[in-house]
Design a protein around this nucleic acid. Structure first.
Length: 310
RNA sequence: GCUCAGGUAGCUCAGUCGGUAGAGCAGGGGACUGAAAAUCCCCGUGUCGGGAGUUCAAUUCUCUCCCUGAGCA
């Protein structure tokens, strides 16, 4: 068949059991899991970022997990490049790729394309960061209002990251964010996708998240953080920004008790799950299932696959 | 038992020289194009511990009771 190759997207907030559902699918048809979670790429934090364990990884091939050191930066564009490559490999082996993760931006960038803005030279980036550190985002925003009023209307004066991004892109390329967004060919995904979501509401999810953090601590989360700190003693390194990593590091460096760190960890995880829910709520064409309905997810995916062939 | 300090939003506290009150955190909603587990926006009525007194008016002043903490016995 000549149509676009199939890709399953398995999404939802953290801690809903997406990995288990993916493995259920893999038991019914040859499949490989491809990660689209921005934190599970870090090799120093397998426990804290809830990467699939050895047993789960033995069930079927898992790609794009735990390959990046803590000091290395991950980005949406880099993810798209790696994911396209990984999905190609899975197809080449005659298997079904199942994208599993919770980073909405990464999935959207893969499926809808991302503006092909060139890499920003480090000195330009640094200059912008220095400025924003000294003057705050507002002075960059004032310039943005002049250079790119359309984009200024979309972002907020207090948004440090987006103001920095808009400034560095304009400085480095001479083109505005709006220009890049409008004049970039948005390549739609060259895949035939089905989107399956796993969801329960926050009040039901919260206790599960707290339990999972207890399990992580029992599984050696604190030792994991200690080891990572020995390898990468830079709290600003990209890998340390994961929820749980930062809180445990705070404790290890003597700032707070373990109980306090844990409380913060639970709190931040819940807030994160809420943001994910907000993101996925407006993503279109998702078929939703409850946690644990792994066979129903598998049935759904299998039916979709058969429908494609017929 | 005595002295002092407190009792104000789910939590920590601010404040009202007497005109019924507001921050941070939590919580809710939202945005999102190379940091996204990031970054950011919007949302604040609560017997101001109970009762009584003074007053046109008390959460604010006075008295009393209850509770908490510290100190002294």
């Amino acid at each position: 068949m000549i149509g676009k190759p199939p890709v399953v997207c398995l999404l939802g907030p953290t801690g809903t059991g997406k990995t288990a559902a993916a493995i259920a699918v893999s038991r019914r048809t040859p499949a490989s899991v491809v990660n689209f979670d921005s934190r599970q790429v870090y090799c120093d934090f397998p426990v804290i970022t809830a990467q699939p364990d050895a047993e789960e990884r033995a069930a079927c091939p898992h790609l794009l997990y735990g390959f990046l050191p803590t000091q290395e930066k991950m980005s949406a564009a880099m993810f798209v490049k790696l994911a396209v490559q990984a999905i190609g490999e899975v197809h080449a082996r005659g298997r079904l790729p199942i994208l599993v993760g919770g980073t909405g931006l990464y999935l959207r960038s893969l499926l809808r394309g991302i503006a092909p803005i060139p890499e920003i030279p480090v000195d330009i980036r640094q200059r912008v960061l220095d400025r924003i550190g000294k003057e705050g985002p507002q002075s960059l925003y004032a310039e943005l209002q002049h250079d790119d009023p359309e984009y200024a209307a979309i972002i907020h004066p207090n948004d440090t990251q987006r103001n920095a991004r808009a400034a560095e892109v304009f400085l480095a390329t001479g083109k505005t964010m709006t220009w890049w967004h409008q004049n970039s060919a948005h390549t739609p995904a060259p895949f035939d996708t089905v989107k399956v979501g796993v969801f329960i509401d926050l009040d039901a999810l919260a206790p599960r998240l707290a339990e999972r953090i207890d399990a992580m601590l029992a599984a050696g989360a604190l030792e994991e953080a200690r080891g990572a700190w020995e390898r990468c003693p830079d709290p600003d390194a990209p890998g340390w920004s994961g929820i749980g990593c930062a809180e445990l590091l705070e404790h290890l460096r003597g700032g707070v008790s373990l109980d306090e760190a844990k409380a913060q960890w639970v709190k931040n995880t819940r807030a994160y799950a809420k943001r994910q829910i907000t993101w996925f709520r407006k993503e279109e064409g998702i078929d939703w299932f409850a946690p644990g309905q792994d066979e129903a997810v598998a049935d759904h995916v299998l039916r979709w696959l058969e429908g494609r062939d017929g």
